[in-house]
Amino acid sequence: MNIFNRINIEQWQHVLSIVSMMLFLCTFVIIVVCSMGMPRTKLTHMESLPLDKEPTDHD
């Protein structure tokens, strides 16, 4: 009943293309959700990390 297959897989390797897409999709969604959910205080702290002044900073 191949007509009901969503994707015709002639060689088993072809399924790997689908796996790769799904993996990325899930990773992307989870990271977007996590980054959007980060508290503002944490973000402000992270953003300010490179901005510490040193005595040898010449403006």
Partner: peptide, 25 residues
């Protein structure tokens, strides 16, 4: 170095998180 030289924080820290994981993956 760009925030350091500009004296301003990175435009979007959230975007940098998505940037990192998407790029690496």
């Amino acid at each position: 170095f760009v925030p350091k030289a500009a004296g301003r924080p990175v435009y979007s820290y959230r975007l940098s998180i998505v940037h990192f994981w998407s790029l690496v993956f």
